[in-house]
């Protein structure tokens, strides 16, 4: 067989083999915890006071039994899931452990489908509606069209615009939703899955605590709202998942997945260095 060593498909093959090989023997490695991840956990654990609008500072005491948490699955979750999965699982596990009331909204069919396939069955089985938590500590609105305009409308009343959950159950009849309607005051904490625009809708006006989760890629555009003080914390990518597992003590796979990332990073770094040495040597020859 004549192997063309410059064929870029070899890179794909090598990376696949490395991921496969390192997945067989996961080892947890040391990782520093970045500040926005620490603050994410601190908000959930201890709470925070938000005073972006100085007129009406809002104190959030951390996630406890009955804390109303809205999860906005409204960014590019479907596309970023491979990088977000373990972090979302760890945070969701923590929220359930603390007794939070979780309300989930998906902004697109894709976003709903990805959670239906990879997350919801993990916590609530294949028929979530029949799970004992459903309606008590978890409600799924499913995909509701309208984007952030919907969030604007939900500020005053969720039920006025969206009277039923994804299964057609009336929200007015669901126990968990009895005090969960005007999102500007009824929602204790918002967790955005790569969600955008929450600053102007909720934080600036109502001081709603907002946490963000995204892929490593999302950090570039979400960092701005964190440094400006609008987001109270962020968890980004598999690294964020590993950080959250460390901070919360919840066992998960993100920490072990860092071995994959490390192996690939090493290969790419070596390839870049070798390529540059070759380039320098070829320049000297000419």
């Amino acid at each position: 067989m004549n192997i063309k060593w410059k064929d870029t498909r070899l890179i794909y093959l090598v990376i696949f083999l490395v991921i496969f090989g390192t997945s067989l023997t996961p080892i947890t490695l040391p990782l520093p915890v970045v500040q926005w991840s620490k603050e994410f956990y601190k908000v959930i654990d201890e709470g925070v006071t938000v005073s972006v609008n100085p007129d009406n500072p809002r104190h959030f005491a951390g996630v406890k039994e009955g804390t109303r948490v809205m999860i906005l699955n409204s960014g590019e979750t479907a596309k970023l899931w491979g990088d977000m999965s373990e972090a979302v699982k760890a945070v969701w596990t923590d929220l359930r452990r603390r007794g939070a009331h979780i309300l989930l909204w998906s902004s697109s069919v894709d976003n709903q489908a990805i959670l239906d396939k990879y997350l919801i069955p993990y916590f609530y089985g294949l028929d979530p509606q029949s799970h004992s938590d459903y309606g008590v500590s978890f409600v799924d609105l499913g995909f509701v069209a309208g984007g952030n305009a919907l969030l604007e409308q939900w500020r005053t009343s969720l039920r006025a615009i969206t009277p039923v959950d994804r299964y057609g159950n009336s929200l007015a009849d669901i126990p968990m939703m009895q005090n969960f309607d005007a999102m500007r005051i009824d929602c204790d904490l918002i967790i955005g899955l790569d969600a955008r625009g929450l600053e102007s809708i909720y934080v600036i006006r109502y001081n709603t605590p907002v946490l963000e989760m995204g892929g490593t890629d999302s950090a570039g555009y979400l960092a701005l709202s964190y440094t400006a003080g609008y987001f109270q914390g962020m968890i980004m990518g598999q690294r964020g998942g590993a950080e959250y597992e460390f901070l919360s003590g919840i066992p998960g796979r993100a920490s072990a997945y860092m071995l994959n990332s490390m192996a690939i990073a090493l290969i790419v770094t070596v390839a870049i260095v070798v390529g540059n040495i070759q380039y320098l040597m070829s320049r000297r020859e000419t």
Partner: peptide, 9 residues
Amino acid sequence: LFTYTPIGE
């Protein structure tokens, strides 16, 4: 690459 993997630490 070194920051987002354990190599840097």
